[in-house]
Amino acid sequence: MREWWVQVGLLAVPLLAAYLHIPPPQLSPALHAWKASGKFFTYKGMRIFYQDSAGVVGSPEIVVLLHGFPTSSYDWYKIWEGLTLRFHRVIALDFLGFGFSDKPRPHHYSIFEQASIVEALLRHLGLQNRRINLLSHDYGDIVAQELLYRYKQNRSGRLTIKSLCLSNGGIFPETHHPLLLQKILKDGGVLSPILTRLMNFFVFSRGLLQYINQRQKFQRRWVGALTSVTIPIHFIYGPLDPVNPYPEFLELYRKTLPRSTVSILDDHISHYPQLEDPMGFLNAYMGFINSF
């Protein structure tokens, strides 16, 4: 009798081959509606999806939302309506390689390019000279840090940032604990292309996950931007986050950014606070925005 693992292998190979040719699942009605209500603009020949909603009439306030990894602008849908009751414009995009935006392969994805795409979107919308409130999560926190660095340098054509609110992002490499799957996909190896296809996520490519390495390489640039600007900064934190664990992350954050205010949500809230506790997240953000 053959070894059991040989039998399993003989059965698994045809099943895996069949699965790899199964088309991705259909979009849900909610995602169809989200796509239909958004628009696209072109950045260097690549289509970028974005949402732009008009909110309070007469208010000058604009908020730009930067989503996390490995998701999309849809992460904000539970607080979208609440934001339109406070802001004149509520804007979000799918970063290159995410959501409904193009996913060029091969491509050297970088935080710098994503930040440039945000700037290009605001130029496209004619908002390049307006003061912008940034609200970010996870991967978007790093993009926000790069935008903050450019703002600090006072370079022509960069965003003018009025305030920044971060949430559950690994802004400090030393307290960031990527999941095992992220490590495997980031570092490559024979499992990387198989897992990429099996999970139906183009975003789980090695190129996209290099932001983890970029964050470590450019730590001084990006953390330095947070510590050196004088705009209001806030952090909304789900303390059950396995990627940025409590209290290790929060202790370093408060030590590094003593000027920043912090909102800690309920104990059971984890890495996606805007989805897990939208009302708590929205209340925390509004409390920050109304404080200056």
Rank of each mutant, 00 (worst) to 15 (best):
S37L: 06
P278L: 05
Q7A: 14
K183R: 05
L250C: 01
Y246S: 03
S136H: 04
S53M: 04
S291K: 06
W76N: 07
A144R: 00
G45N: 07
K35W: 15
L11E: 10
R215A: 03
V57Y: 12
T227F: 05
R259A: 11
P25L: 13
N290V: 00
F201C: 11
D187W: 08
C165P: 00
G9A: 07
L31D: 09
K39P: 13
L159V: 12
H107L: 14
L85Y: 13
P245R: 15
V13R: 09
D94I: 09
L166G: 01
L135K: 09
Y74P: 02
L275G: 15
K162N: 05
H67S: 04
D241V: 03
R89H: 03
R259Q: 08
K217P: 08
S156K: 14
A36R: 08
I22R: 12
R254H: 11
Y19E: 03
A92K: 07
N168T: 01
D141L: 12
M279I: 10
I142E: 09
P70T: 12
V90R: 05
Y149C: 02
L166P: 00
L31C: 06
L10S: 05
L166I: 00
M46E: 13
I91N: 07
P24I: 04
Y272W: 15
G224V: 02
D102Y: 02
D277E: 10
P258G: 03
R47Q: 09
L159K: 09
S110G: 11
K78L: 15
K44V: 10
G188H: 01
L66S: 12
S37I: 01
I62E: 00
L179S: 12
E251I: 13
P70D: 14
V6W: 13
S167T: 08
L265Q: 01
L257R: 06
M279G: 09
F288S: 10
L11Y: 13
L121F: 04
V118E: 05
L96G: 14
K183P: 02
L134N: 06
S163Q: 05
L125W: 03
G140Y: 09
L135A: 14
L31P: 07
L185W: 01
P178L: 04
E61G: 03
G126R: 09
I111S: 10
N168I: 00
M1R: 05
S53F: 10
F98V: 03
D277I: 15
F69Y: 14
L179P: 06
V243N: 02
S59Y: 11
L85H: 13
Q145I: 01
P242Q: 06
R158Q: 10
E119L: 03
Q274D: 07
Y149N: 08
R131H: 15
Q214F: 00
Y139F: 12
S270N: 04
G99S: 15
K217L: 03
P14R: 02
F281C: 05
L240P: 03
P25Q: 15
P60R: 08
A17I: 06
V63G: 07
